[in-house]
Design a protein around this nucleic acid. Structure first.
Lengths: 190, 190
DNA sequence: AGGTTTATTGAGCGATCACTCAAGATTATA
DNA sequence: TATAATCTTGAGTGATCGCTCAATAAACCT
């Protein structure tokens, strides 16, 4: 009985994510989304419900992708190699709509207004931190990193420094690759 | 001939800075500013010209204050002591409207829109980085830090990690003091 | 006091915000 | 082919955006 939608929902979410990632939540208007997604208001709301609901879906997509990318790096370079490579990759990826982390940007933008999506972004960051901790544990199991360190503390620090690096990469005139290199050297010295 | 304004312009800028700092540029409306500054639209525009012009003044104020705070810490604890104390102070300051750096927030929010104020924020961050570099140089002169390191590289890394720390401090459930402690220990190990 | 200059007020400007909904188009089943 | 279900369209909602300006009030000058 139905009529099938003309759009690819998955592709739409990716494009919306890139727009939100670059421009932020408040900085992205419905007009922007309608233009990029080629959707009239009616279709947009039928498909996603609201701007906030779509934003939430894009954050989920972003977090999933991050986990996949990290896992792929572990597969290719091993735990320590992945931890050392990830910052460099993130900072030199010319295809990304922004260097900074979308979840960090969201926390900064939304927590000051006590928006519920700030907590959602934070939850995704916690998930990511747990993934980092697991990679640190794996590196310790393999003997790549001394078992004397607490994996959770390592992951917390790693994520914090990574967010700093990615903000630095967003700035004009900052040699982010040099910072990434220093991070990597610091990890190998553990 | 004139009539004197009833407000204290300096105080107004401080209050506006706190509001912008907490809520960001787009997140702060003229209505918000009028309420907090107790200014009608006419007075507001007579005093500041535009929302953007006031935002620019608040960033300048913010950057000046940061420099002053760092200088005071150097006076009290010496160069290395100041560098070690600064992150901890910033993260435990309950009076601040936000933990994250206002300039970092501004760069993230505005650079995606190619707003000219993003470059202004970046310029202030560069000034701050130069101040950090000078403190590192002073620490080396005093023998508190090995002269083998490049002060500029140290400052760049310090600023990057500090931004990460301050974002972490903005999050719920993150022990930012622990990260600050680790940063401090890392500096003393130089 | 009279005149000049500046500050304050608040109604209201056009533009844009996120969002709604009725009408028409398209595709399924009966 | 008729009917039902869904999708697409776009004009239009009230609210809010940053901002203007003419009218009024207050403080200085001669």
């Amino acid at each position: 009985m139905p009529r099938k939608p003309e759009y690819d929902r998955d592709d739409l979410i990716n494009r919306a994510r890139d727009l939100f990632w670059k421009q932020g939540w408040a900085g992205t208007s419905l007009k922007d989304l309608e233009r990029v997604l080629r959707l009239k208001p009616g279709s947009f709301y039928a498909a996603f419900g609201s701007k906030d609901a779509l934003f939430e879906e894009t954050m989920e997509r972003y977090a999933e992708d991050g986990g996949r990318r990290m896992a792929a790096l572990v597969e290719e370079f091993g735990p320590l190699g992945a931890l050392c490579t990830f910052p460099f990759r993130v900072v030199t990826n010319a295809n990304a709509p922004a260097k900074a982390c979308m979840l960090a940007k969201s926390v900064l933008e939304l927590s000051g207004r006590d928006h519920r999506l700030a907590a959602v972004a934070n939850r995704h960051l916690e998930t990511m931190e747990k993934r980092f901790a697991q990679v640190f544990r794996d590196a310790q199991t393999r003997g790549e990193i001394s078992a004397a360190h607490d994996p959770h503390a390592l992951a917390r620090r790693y994520q914090s420094d990574l967010m700093g690096l990615r903000i630095s990469a967003e700035r004009e005139g900052i040699d982010a690759a040099a910072i990434a290199h220093e991070m990597s050297e610091g990890l190998r010295r553990l």
